[in-house]
Design a protein around this nucleic acid. Structure first.
Length: 571
RNA sequence: UCCCGGGUCGUCUAAUGGUAGGACAGCGGUUUUUGGUGCCGCCUGUAGGGGUUCGAAUCCUCUCCCGGGAGCCA
């Protein structure tokens, strides 16, 4: 993808970098990227950017992108996450048949570790974690060398073998790279390569007792696979010298199977009103604030899917925002604009009322038995695509309209139903409000209107105009549906950021479940997972699991909040 | 405190020494049997100071601001 028809391609310094590499023949014109998730959680909107950067960059240059699970930490990983990631990736549009696993490289990694030890580039440190951490020093503070740093190579080899054999307790010793305890870059102060874990690994079982750290596994895995461009987010920038250091040492000691891969960092996706912190999301799930990882309020890919976001719109959004090194935070409205753009073109229009109020046509005709007659009207399914055809909708003298569509005391510029006013019922008739009924609390319970038989279809023969066209649902034919409304993802803007604990000030997108909504009968034909536009209300996704629950996908350009705002300001 | 990276409309992003442009958001208009869609218009920006140059968002310099960095996480 390099820009849609609607938009020019956005910034993408990665694209330029690869182009430059191809010019100079750095990798012989070869382009290989990788997407390396750790199977310890679900993919979210933030991952979507990394995924498109990795896959689309490769595709653009006729290269390949491999999916590699960075499963180097048995404590947190699980096969279930592997399956979930595979499924979400396929949904996003990047199906992967043969994923790679860092755990498949454990043997090679160990061999290389031995090579580094033999070359005097690594040593076994038997100090505890706190001591090692303390000796590392601090920003602008000197580091201190471990007393084990210069132990004999043979001793290192023997200890490393013992670690691997499972003869050592967790935390008792680690293998460290011998680099520079005075390095300005803290990553270079003798980083840990192996730690001891007697845990069960989801793929290698109990075969290993030592596990490579991210730094020792990542670049080497890239090299084994033949990755040319190792694209990652900005927080790994300070790791790049270490990434290079390992590869250089291996290259000079035993050689590398491919050209040395190069790490390039780009800014991660920041989205307003959205939290992608795994810690916070997990808490929301664990504490039951949301119904699970696929709750439509969640920013996970499966949450967005349930919510009705087309996968293509997420891809297009990622392509549009570009790839840069600037710390940035995109507005969720931009993402939503891509969602709306897609949906507007394909979503079938249906009439529905979320908060119904009953309307009775006082002069509606009856048949010889005294029953109200039924008229049928034609409505276009999707004005953006007439090929979607029309549908026949029954109309009788009693129907529901949106509670907000009737006001006893309307503000200026309110064009909908109000005593004495004539409006158009979409596709049906002109009706004029003649009165209304209220309950003891003054709440309107029923609105009375008269209709003009001459206006069937919605046009007056005398040419008179109405200012408003309203939607309606025949009471006799209405289908009961429930609708879940919620605010945009999560609102983390504001005080939450100042206090430090995001969770405390995070108010999860409020969920309002409306259970007495009425919709056209044809709604029963809507397929689970399908998104329809409830006219004037927004786009709603039919829940894939629960037969009649709809989730609001996005509002129309004027969301309820905006409509509310206009109303308050008199419009 | 030290090191590294970054600073262009409100937001994201173009322009790489030669007219600061686009999208989203906002505002106004228009079309419309959806307060939707479409179309038209408007709005606001090169963090600051010095310097080089005929000419600087772009090059140099100082300052300021933001992000990342001291896991046996990734």
């Amino acid at each position: 993808m390099s820009g849609s028809d609607d938009h020019p391609a956005a910034a993408n310094f990665v694209r330029e970098l690869v182009e430059a590499d191809n010019q100079s023949g750095t990798f012989g014109g070869r382009v290989q990227t990788r997407f390396p998730p750790e199977p310890n959680g679900f993919l979210h909107i933030g991952h979507a950017k990394a995924i498109t950067v990795d896959f689309e960059t490769a595709a653009e240059f006729d290269g390949i992108c491999r999916l590699r699970f960075d499963d180097t930490n048995p404590d947190t990983e699980d096969t279930a996450f592997v399956e979930a990631i595979l499924a979400d990736l396929a949904w996003l549009g990047y199906p992967v048949d043969e994923p790679l696993y860092a755990s498949d490289y454990f043997e090679q990694l160990f061999d290389w570790a031995v090579v580094l030890v033999e070359a005097g580039h690594a040593y076994v440190d038997e100090q505890d974690g706190d001591t090692i951490s303390r000796q590392r020093g601090g920003y602008g503070r000197p580091g201190e060398e471990s007393p084990f740093r210069d132990r004999p190579i043979a001793e290192n080899l023997e200890r490393l073998a013992s670690m691997r054999a499972g003869e050592q307790a967790e935390g008792s010793m680690v293998l460290r790279a011998k680099i520079d305890m005075q390095a300005e870059n803290m990553q270079l102060r003798d980083p840990v390569m192996y730690r001891i874990r007697h845990a069960e690994h989801h793929r290698t079982g109990d075969r290993w007792h030592i596990y490579p750290t991210y730094d020792w596994a990542h670049g080497q895995s890239d090299a084994i696979e033949g990755t040319t461009h190792s694209l990652c987010t900005l927080e790994f920038e300070s790791h790049r010298p270490l990434y290079d250091w390992f590869l250089e040492r291996i290259a000079e000691s035993s050689g590398l199977p491919h050209d040395r891969p190069r790490q390039t960092e780009f800014a991660r996706l920041g989205l307003t009103h959205t939290v992608t912190s795994k810690r916070v999301l997990k808490r929301l799930v664990d504490e039951g604030v949301v119904d699970g990882w696929d709750d439509p309020r969640m920013p996970t890919l499966r949450g967005l899917r349930k919510r009705g976001y087309p996968a293509a719109s997420i891809r297009e959004f990622c392509d549009f925002i570009g790839v840069a090194r600037t710390n940035s935070r995109n507005e969720i409205e931009l993402l939503e604009s891509f969602v709306r753009r897609r949906l507007n073109a394909v979503a079938q229009r249906r009439m529905a009322v979320l908060r119904p109020v009953r309307v009775v046509v006082r002069n509606w005709p009856t048949d010889k038995d005294g029953d109200p007659i039924i008229e049928y009207v034609e409505l276009v399914n999707n004005p953006e695509n007439e090929a979607d055809g029309t549908r026949t909708v029954p109309f009788t003298g009693v129907f529901w309209i949106e509670r907000d569509d009737f006001m006893v005391d309307p503000p200026p510029k309110y064009y909908r139903l109000t005593p004495g006013r004539e409006v158009r019922l979409r596709g049906a008739y002109f009706v004029t409000c003649t009165g209304y009924v209220t309950d003891d609390d003054g709440e309107v319970t029923e609105v009375h209107v008269t209709f003009d038989p001459e206006t069937k279809g919605g046009n007056a023969p005398d040419g008179r105009k109405v200012k408003s066209t309203m939607h309606w649902v025949s009471a006799e034919h209405a289908v009961d549906v429930s609708v879940a409304l919620y605010e945009r993802l999560f609102a983390v803007e504001g005080p939450g950021e100042a206090t430090g604990d995001v969770f405390d000030d995070l108010h999860p997108a409020s969920l309002e479940l409306l259970t007495d909504c009425k919709a056209e009968p044809v709604l029963a034909d809507t397929a689970p997972g399908e998104v329809v536009q409830f006219e004037r209300l927004g786009y709603f996704a039919h829940d894939p699991d629960e037969s009649m629950l709809f989730h609001r996908t996005v509002g129309l350009r004027d969301e309820w909040a905006n409509i509310q705002k206009r109303r308050q300001s008199g419009g």
